[in-house]
Design a protein around this nucleic acid. Structure first.
Lengths: 340, 340
DNA sequence: CTGAAAGCGCTTACAG
DNA sequence: CTGAAAGCGCTTACAG
């Protein structure tokens, strides 16, 4: 594609009257350890610089078996949470001399698998995946092949892999507990399709808090939103909740998008928050602080997740021999604001 | 890295008793055009499937000279605007059989150039760049080498390249004109470091609107925020504006982040919006709609930008012969809400 | 101290 | 209808 022909190792070899081997050693900083003379080293370096030599990484990777690229697979790169993780991953990767390819799955297992396949075909060295959780078989296959990867945000309880997640059950419990302590009794929960085990965990926390307080879990107050049609689905679900008897006094949203759409709809329905209905959510957005009222939420430690995931992955890449599995569960806490 | 050895073309050749050439033709769908017999084709396909053959794209790329990868370089992938562009680019790329690598520059020209170099070394086929605009020389070099790339969001007026930007001057003018029409007279402008020509354009629009209305441009009402220290810098600048005489009655922010930090600070200063001071901004966020009051803003057509950029780039890649330069200036319009 | 040669896994012009 | 061979731009075990 580039019209100006790139200069190759061979060109430098010709120019310096040396072999490709010698040039390769020198350019890879292995001159000293191969006892190549100072003059030779300097000559090669000089010529490489003068000719503006840039190694072809495709060739390097093919012969070395390392692409120095890692892949990041997330549901949506447009979600600030995942974008932040991507950002951190990129920074860490840069310090290690890696670049990162990414792909969005839209929570669709086929897309997820396509991305995994493509990335493997491109010989990506390792993967960080926020799985749709409907791709168990393939993830298991990856693990069985001992391919280096780490799961983030979601994990398969049935597969023993590296992962970095948060305290979903406990923090969910804390959130609902807080609502109950403040006196709310009819606490609805709006969540997404329950095959995501992290959602199940958040539900379990909700349940535990209620039961501990002697409140029966009312299935009619638990609404599941369609992941692929969130805006409308949230609207419908909220309208249903508004008709519930006895009247609900709080809604706990299990993700920040749900809270966003929910807040929006409650507003158009002229529900006063928190006077009529209190709200809060798992996950956060920098913008929530500026809402009226500011939304009580559980911020996700995106940076930390990205950092840990990167750390684990690079450990794997740098010491493929080591066989330990790292499973991180990061604590997350409620940030109280004014919405409940 | 993978412990299970991948099966290669050669394995299939051995298994089927055919040459690598024949196998390669067939696997690339060139069986028919090379007059390879139906049986042979079917046999190869069957064996490839049975052995679960996956081509090594590194090798493919090295010999074909095409990596089927494009690179995206933006200031911050965490900015929803750029994340949306990234998302669209990815979708388009996928339909074309390409993957995308990305990198964030943090507006630093050195990082930008490092990313460009790395991506080129990795033989990326083309680039989409939201440049820091302090990298003129290198961008010019890219252009001179006839390397396929398209600039987004920002362009160099001094270099003739493909780009996709928005109507900065005109829309800025419209926004300020609207403020003036509503009766605001002392309109401050908060912007970022002015070497970004799109910021200059927005400033020009501001100026034109004022002058047209017979209002002199007051330099003290124009504040420049430090791009690398936005939060604090915005705070200082707002405090200065609050002391200005005559008192300002509106602030026009030239980006959505500035509006975010500005709104936040105005709130802590207990300034009523729009009663005490009206605000509005270039750029938008889905959350602005839910602020109290909702912020009047100019939404960026992120999707369209991504789509156009991708279209132009793939045209370049698919028809390298064509020499036309495409420069898109997408119109953007004010979305009136309640903040002014 | 340095080099010839094989190999990484593909593609493709050429030959028959 | 199919194959032998050169080539893409590197790395590296081996030899001297």
């Amino acid at each position: 594609m580039q019209s100006i022909k790139r200069v190759s190792l061979k060109d430098i070899a010709t120019e310096t009257q040396l072999s490709k081997t010698t040039v390769s050693f020198i350019l890879n900083g292995k001159g000293e350890e191969n006892n190549i003379s100072r003059e030779t080293i300097e000559k090669v370096l000089e010529v490489a610089k003068r000719l503006n030599y840039r190694p072809n990484y495709l060739a390097k990777s093919l012969s070395s078996g390392k692409s120095n690229t890692i892949g990041l697979i997330v549901p949506r790169i447009t979600d600030t949470y995942f974008a932040q993780i991507a950002s951190v991953m990129e920074m860490v990767a840069e310090t290690k001399g890696y670049t990162v390819v990414y792909g969005s799955t839209e929570e669709q297992p086929e897309k997820e698998q396509n991305l995994i396949d493509t990335f493997l075909d491109k010989q990506v060295d390792g993967l960080v995946i926020a799985s749709s959780l409907k791709n168990e078989e393939n993830i298991r296959a990856l693990r069985d092949r001992r391919y280096p990867f780490v799961l983030i945000d979601r994990y398969y309880s049935s597969i023993s892999t590296n992962y970095v997640v948060v305290t979903n059950e406990q923090s969910s419990y804390n959130m609902v507990k807080m609502l109950l302590t403040k006196g709310y009794r009819n606490v609805a929960m709006v969540t997404v399709s329950s095959y995501l085990n992290l959602m199940v965990d958040r539900y379990e926390g909700y349940k535990r808090a209620l039961l501990e307080e002697g409140i029966a879990v009312n299935d009619r107050l638990i609404k599941e939103v369609d992941l692929y049609n969130m805006e409308n689905s949230t609207r419908c679900v909220i309208d249903e909740l508004l008709l519930a008897k006895p009247r609900i006094d709080a809604i706990y949203f299990t993700t920040h998008d749900l809270a966003f759409w929910g807040f929006k709809h409650l507003r158009t329905r002229c529900i006063a928050i928190p006077e009529n209905i209190a709200i809060c959510c798992f996950g956060d957005s920098p913008y929530f602080e500026l809402f009226t009222p500011p939304i009580t939420a559980i911020p996700m430690p995106a940076k930390q997740i990205g950092q840990e995931a990167a750390r684990i992955l690079f450990n794997l890449l740098e010491q493929p021999a080591v066989n330990s599995i790292e499973q991180y569960v990061l604590p997350v806490e409620v940030t109280e604001r004014k919405s409940c």
